[in-house]
Design a protein around this nucleic acid. Structure first.
Lengths: 227, 227
DNA sequence: CTACTCTGCCCGTACGTGCGGTCAGTTTTC
DNA sequence: GAAAACTGACCGCACGTACGGGCAGAGTAG
């Protein structure tokens, strides 16, 4: 049924990536517990054994999904931070990027978000958890910079970062990438409310929130669709 | 090994409620998929069959947890809305209440929050979903009132409600009721940032966010611990 | 008071199913 | 020919739940 495409057996990681992508989609749709080897194998027209051969265990497969995801996000965060010096731009960029991912890699994003809790619980997730913590540290740092620069009103940076992540990580429960609501609008609205909440003057905030503005454009360049 | 037959008192469905409470705790700790009859039964020193006798299926049991939870929340929301006329007070009250629940009924709250997605997916959850939607409608209505009254800057009320719920519903992944961070502080910080973000003047916002203020007190009275 | 019956909780077990993972062997690629 | 990719049959186990029966208390008749 499925054409050979490239010869089976060789293509370095080709088949492997396919497996990972399908697994990711299943996790996104049903959650980790209900996702299973059998269905993934059937969908790809291969045997369960093949999946085991490539990944060993289900836990490892999820860990790899999370690590790859966070790896990409960290790279991108560093990239746009290097280009955006102002704290309110940085915070806005995190929001734009967070929303953007929901449409750029919907499956991976949902899979990550709905299974984040395993980062703290399960063993074997140390790497991914470290990446996640590093990412949050970047946001906290930007919030602190803003406070010190007097752009944000003083407050608890850690709590604020959690408030912010909550809004973004919750999106998987309601946001439909195929739906009517454009992600840019979501990002813009979230940005405006958040930045105003941090005490950023409306004009500065408007620029940072603008879907056509410099921040959004920078994020769009950095977080480009891959292959 | 079973205890003396009848527990002190004969609270209507005493045993039944005990089962539900234990099940709820297991869902909160491991998630619905990993929670199972065997463990609950063992912990209560009863047979799996007893659980089935009382609830029929696992799905039904979860549905009942969700319906009871949302029922209580709706009652309380109506109660504090009746006492707080101002939009900024109402929004603050939703935040205070949302945080408060994490310590008042930690297990039920976590169980609800981590399994919310089933409200939209699964059949048999129509009632609970209706309750959840009704709750969100209350928040959206308060946001719209605020806009019309000129207390909030114009914006997309639905998006704002989702942004707000995200912050609160995400708490289960990081908030520890036993931890150092007092829930009142979380609520206060969330309130301040959110209300400022909605355009509420700082003095008005400070009163509404104050853990000792009228709004927090009203919520504390309405959302009292139950027997 | 006694005997009988009805009823609702509760028990223990057994069954079917689904799933993660193993393994010995085959095919493909270089 | 060596190594990697792949297969398909199989195992063991955990879990939901169906089922038949036990048992204690309430109601009723004599």
């Amino acid at each position: 049924m499925a054409e050979p495409v490239v010869a089976p057996g060789r293509p370095r990681g080709g088949r492997r990536d396919e497996i990972l992508a399908t697994f990711t989609r299943h996790v996104a749709e049903r959650g980790y517990d209900r996702a299973n080897f059998g269905d993934v194998a059937a969908e790809l027209g291969m045997s369960k054994g093949t999946i085991v051969h490539h990944f060993g265990t289900k836990d490892r497969m999820l860990a790899e999904v999370q690590e790859r995801y966070m790896g990409r996000r960290l790279d991108e965060a560093h990239a746009f931070l290097a280009r955006l010096p102002a704290p309110e731009q940085r915070i806005a960029a995190f929001v734009h990027a967070g929303v953007r991912y929901s449409t750029l890699e919907p499956a991976t994003t949902v899979a990550f978000q709905r299974e984040v809790v395993r980062l703290t619980d399960e063993p074997g997730m140390e790497t991914a958890r470290g990446q996640r913590d590093a990412y949050r540290d970047l946001v906290v740092a930007a919030l602190r910079e803003g406070e010190e620069a007097g752009v944000f009103v003083p407050g608890d940076a850690r709590l604020r970062s959690l408030q912010m992540f909550g809004s973004l990580h919750w999106m998987w429960t309601w946001f439909d990438p195929q739906g009517r609501m454009p992600p840019e609008d979501v990002a813009a609205e979230f940005c405006r409310t958040l930045l105003r909440g941090l005490g950023v003057p409306d004009d500065l905030g408007a620029v940072a929130a603008d879907p056509q503005g410099p921040v959004a454009r920078c994020v769009a360049e950095v977080c480009a669709p891959r292959s």
